[in-house]
């Protein structure tokens, strides 16, 4: 969809130049799949981030580092990343739009957009960190990046890091939508790490599209901690999630409907995880 109110197109020579332009009100563009659908109220310039060396996936002891302009398809086609965390990243990415969209949409653009997302819950459940540039290079937990509203300030997302899983651990994702091509009415990502004594050492229960941005259901995580992941624990966590999520009505579903779905998705994710754990 051509955008009319565009007064200039900047190909920055480096990230500092790109950031200055963004600070002065220009719109950063990666895949552009979201930018191109929104007509700005007044003429602005676009800053093309895909000309910067921000693309690629590497793996080290710290986990996977993924550059901001890496496409969702490139993530899906990276065999080690696709296999990571029981394949939860790949399972989720296959449900994001279409192959055509994923060939263009980037992880940095997706995370900077910070709404309507199947990707964010999964990355939150895996304790991902995000890297960005706001005059200096910064890094911090993805959860804090959204909780502190940092994503709304002028910055350039430069990449993410997904830490290794500490086994035994397992992860799962569920998206509830009319068809998988549609945006989610609700989604859920969970990850459980197990201690030597068989109890839960770390729990992540993340619910998104409430329709607020995805966030941990802290009370459910606290409940799961330190006990076995048995049917009683799963059922209690699901009940807590249904009650605690900040559910609201919007054009896709009512709050009441979302709470009912939340209980089901949390139960399904945790049951799938329980089935995968030793």
């Amino acid at each position: 969809m051509s955008v009319v109110n565009v007064s200039g197109f900047i190909r920055p020579i480096d990230i500092a130049t790109a950031f200055v332009a963004v600070q002065q009100g220009s719109i950063p563009v990666s895949g552009g799949t979201d930018v191109i659908l929104h007509e700005p109220p007044a003429p602005v310039s676009l800053v093309d981030l895909t000309v910067l060396p921000l693309s690629g996936i590497s793996e080290s002891g710290d986990g996977f580092s993924i550059g901001a302009t890496t496409t969702l398809s490139e993530m899906l086609e990276h065999p080690r990343l696709a296999a990571h965390a029981d394949g939860v990243i790949a399972d989720m990415l296959r449900l994001v739009g279409s192959p055509l969209l994923r060939n263009r949409a980037t992880i940095g653009g997706h995370l900077a957009r910070g709404r309507l997302s199947d990707v964010i819950p999964v990355l939150l459940s895996l304790d991902a960190t995000i890297n960005w540039y706001d005059g200096s290079p910064r890094a911090g937990p993805l959860a804090d990046f959204y909780a502190s509203q940092t994503h709304r300030t002028p910055l350039i997302v430069t990449g993410i890091t997904i830490p290794p899983m500490h086994r035994p651990a397992a992860a799962a994702f569920r998206k509830f939508s009319r068809t998988h091509f549609d945006l989610a009415i609700l989604n859920c990502a969970c990850r459980i790490d197990i201690a030597d004594d068989g109890s839960v050492a770390a729990a992540r229960v993340v619910v998104g599209e409430t329709p607020a941005l995805a966030a941990s259901v802290t009370d459910a995580e606290v409940l799961l901690h330190g006990r076995p992941l048995d049917p009683a624990a799963i059922s209690s966590a699901a009940t807590i999630a249904a009650a605690e999520i900040p559910a609201r009505d919007d054009d896709r579903a009512t709050a009441e409907y979302r709470r009912a779905i939340a209980a089901v998705l949390v139960r399904r994710c945790l049951a799938e995880i329980a089935g995968r754990l030793p």
Binding site: V3, V29, D48
Partner: peptide, 15 residues
């Protein structure tokens, strides 16, 4: 070589 929705791509980016 990669198939994309041409309606979602800014032409300036395919230089």
């Amino acid at each position: 070589g990669r198939a994309v929705n041409a309606c979602l791509v800014f032409a300036g980016q395919v230089d």
